[in-house]
Design a protein around this nucleic acid. Structure first.
Lengths: 239, 239
DNA sequence: ATTAAAAGATAGTAAAACTATCGAAAAAGA
DNA sequence: TCTTTTTCGATAGTTTTACTATCTTTTAAT
């Protein structure tokens, strides 16, 4: 986990987990005030409920009990809110991964653990009161790729907005290379796992004929599929 | 290829390829008039140039030399235009696949051909004057998933708007099953190939550190990665 | 030649996406 | 504690987007 733009800190007293965010994502730090925390909390609730397209600062303000102008003091526009939430999620997930794979030596076991964390619904983490990780996970599934599928992707990338996502990919890619140093596509396989953990979930629930899990709708099946995919690919004794 | 909602027809005289479209996608058939064809042509040009978010009927009308109201007679809203273009593309691609794999018996060779067609840039097909397939391919890469990543996905699916995409997935899934009838995830592997053919392309060009092709930026490398991924997964002598 | 459909021209509305200003309240510093 | 700065709430206004409506002219079909 990089220390440049985000780090995970644990304050023992309050057991509060804080992900340090890229300051260019916001005009005023939303984690620094009650209003700001409410903006994050209700953004998650509203984007989850109505989708990103129907999410507006006006509606958000009404739900919080403040005004549109109040929101604009924190975020330039709703795209920045989405970038903030996705960056937060990837940072949080990388922390979960580094925490939960901490004393695992076998990279194969580690990789399995990572696939599990990627594909299984997050439980709401009590350590962050204003972020509902479970809803945020569903937002990432349905809206996450809209953060980068834009014409400004180059600009946003220059400003390091995708650093948490890229860092996570790097971590996963490195584990893949540990499993098999000769495997030729560790980065592409890493981004494939991450994207497919979410896309297969979306398809399973919305366009089930695109998956083999339409009947059961069990996340564990996505995990099994990804494990098969990954470990077939990186197996050492391939021709 | 299904005959219900779209079929490919070749008129020998004009050598004109026509993809039959789901009528619920439009208010007036855009292929039936000059204005309609211009709407398709300039929609492709403008979405490609500015991205779907900045694409408006006002700008489109100005480029064509008609009025906003004129566009609304053909399409209910811009989301329907995106659905139309994606459906058209998947229909066209399925035709290309069935045409180009026509007399191939070996399903493994067939699958390789499919991966090639999915991942390699389409050349502009002279048979359709008002659709630039090359630009459309790039639109599918950057905007394609926005067609289904919405809250209306269930409604849109009921109206069969994703049928061409699902049909293509089915075709690819069937080829996978032909290669190895015991492979457990043919549909999920099919949707993974299709999505990754596009996502790896987007990443390669916009967030290169998420791939192993950032240096060369060659589509042939994506093809190699997908071939390795697929044929490792479906290999019969796996443990 | 008649008439039905398509296209052009114009107007107007509601909501979204902002920007600007002002005064009250709350927090921070001296 | 008093003062200054920061934050917030309230209000107002602009531009653009996303439509709907109507009327007239042009084009196409019978």
């Amino acid at each position: 986990m990089s220390l440049e733009f985000y780090t995970a800190k644990i304050f023992e007293m309050k057991l509060q987990l804080q992900i340090e965010m890229n300051k260019a994502l916001f005009l005023r730090n939303p984690e620094g005030s009650e209003l700001g925390k409410n903006i994050l909390k209700y953004s998650i609730l509203l984007i989850h409920k109505n989708g990103f397209e129907l999410f507006t600062f006006k509606k958000l303000a009404e739900h919080i009990g403040t005004t549109e102008a109040g929101i604009y003091r924190y975020f330039e526009n709703k795209h920045k809110v989405l970038l903030y939430l996705t960056a937060w999620y990837w940072g949080w997930l990388e922390f979960q991964i580094s925490f939960q794979t901490n004393n695992i030596k076998d990279p194969n076991v580690k990789l399995k653990k990572v696939i599990n964390l990627l594909a299984k619904a997050a439980e709401d983490d009590e350590q962050t009161s204003y972020v509902n990780e479970s809803l945020l996970h569903q937002i990432i599934i349905a809206e996450g790729s809209k953060a980068y599928l834009t014409k400004q992707v180059g600009e946003d990338n220059k400003q390091q907005f995708f650093k948490p996502y890229k860092d996570l990919c790097k971590v996963v890619g490195n584990i893949i290379s540990e499993c098999n140093p000769k495997y030729k596509y560790p980065k592409s396989l890493a981004s494939t796992i991450i994207e497919m953990a979410h896309f297969q979930n979306f398809f399973m629930n919305n366009l089930p004929s695109l998956t083999d899990f339409g009947k059961s709708k069990q996340e564990s099946e996505i995990v099994a599929f990804l494990n098969d995919l990954v470990f077939s690919s990186i197996k050492k004794d391939k021709l």
